[in-house]
């Protein structure tokens, strides 16, 4: 079943079209990635899903219910981690989470239990009495996440949750996204960090100028550009190479030698590196480096739009 379904969604600000006739569906149990440069329309879309912005045209359905008509249902089932921190610096971590969970209607013992649970989940259990003022950027981000998950939403939306934080906190957040997903949450994750999206997302949409220009698993997206990969092997004694034998290895399309580097083009889904290396060792070729030139999402984005993600 689709957790989220977006049909012909459009948002205009005056003449400017921020989101342009977007169609999208997020399946249950997915981590769905939104990849796009700044200003591509990711946050606008998310703000419409979370009903912070009015929809100009089109419709959004959450678990089969229209988000405008069943606004309360939507709000109870979505957890949002906004791009700009939404926590109160003058309240303790515990009070922050409990305040937001209270907004979702949690009361009494359940409220306490869920607040504790959310704080433990993001690793701030021992900081419950501390004020966010004293927190690092990463801890604030984690608290921000705790505030969004205490009410056990079906869909969690994370809008650039790793902007401006240290690597440890980033790993922590990425892992907690995976953990939330294993616990049965669907997640929408936006970022302009390609590596993060590539690491955690099960399906990805590339957004540019308010449109989805490509959508699919990362393998599907990469195969838009090419089905092949290139392995570059630097060698010391190239004269010992048996190029014809290399071509016989399964999956190899072509082999060429450029100065001291053998460039092997092979089918993307086949791993034949073992065979290649074994052959080189048999021929007593001295290997100085091995490098794989497979396309990544950044290349896909660059090729399709002609621009860098961080332009």
């Amino acid at each position: 079943m689709n957790v989220l379904e977006i049909r012909n969604l459009t948002k205009t600000f005056g003449d400017f079209i921020a989101v342009d006739n977007m169609n999208l569906s997020v399946n249950e149990g997915e981590i769905f990635g939104f990849l796009g440069a700044n200003g591509a329309g990711k946050s606008t879309t998310i703000n419409m899903i979370s009903s912070l912005l009015r929809i100009t045209k089109g419709e959004i359905k959450l678990l089969g219910k229209d988000i405008v008509k069943d606004n309360k249902f939507t709000k109870m089932n979505i957890g949002i981690v906004p791009q700009d921190l939404a926590i109160y610096e003058e309240m303790t971590a515990y009070e922050n989470v409990s305040f937001f969970a209270g907004l979702y209607g949690l009361r009494g013992a359940l409220l306490k239990e869920r607040t504790e649970e959310a704080l433990e989940f993001v690793g701030l259990g021992d900081k419950r009495k501390a004020l966010p003022k004293s927190f690092s950027g990463g801890m604030k981000r984690r608290l921000n996440i705790a505030c969004a998950i205490a009410h056990h939403p079906k869909l969690i939306i994370m809008d650039e949750p790793t902007v401006g934080i240290d690597p440890q906190s980033r790993n922590y957040i990425l892992n907690s996204v995976k953990k939330l997903n294993q616990m049965g949450c669907s997640v929408i994750y936006t970022s302009h960090y390609m590596e993060e999206v590539e690491e955690i997302c099960t399906r990805i949409a590339i957004v540019d100028h308010g449109k989805i220009i490509a959508e699919g698993t990362k393998e599907q997206l990469k195969s838009i550009i090419t089905d092949t990969k290139e392995t570059w092997i630097g060698v010391k004694n190239a004269e010992r190479l048996d190029l014809n034998a290399l071509k016989q290895i399964s999956g190899v399309n072509s082999v060429r030698l450029e100065e001291q580097t053998v460039k092997i083009v092979s089918k993307g889904e086949i791993n034949n590196l073992n065979g290649v290396i074994q052959l080189l060792i048999r021929d007593q070729v001295e290997i100085s480096s091995v490098e794989e030139q497979a396309p990544n999402l950044e290349t896909v984005f660059l090729t399709l739009t002609g621009r860098n993600l961080r332009d």
């Binding site: 003449d15 400017f16 079209i17 342009d20 100028h209 490509a214 195969s223 838009i224 550009i225 090419t226 089905d227 090729t303 399709l304 002609g306």
Partner: peptide, 21 residues
């Protein structure tokens, strides 16, 4: 490309900040 045809028409003119459709 492998699964897509891409046609780009690019000029070196002044362009525009805001595209009106």
């Amino acid at each position: 490309l492998n699964r897509m045809i891409q046609s780009v028409i690019a000029d070196n003119g002044k362009g525009t900040e805001k595209i009106v459709k």
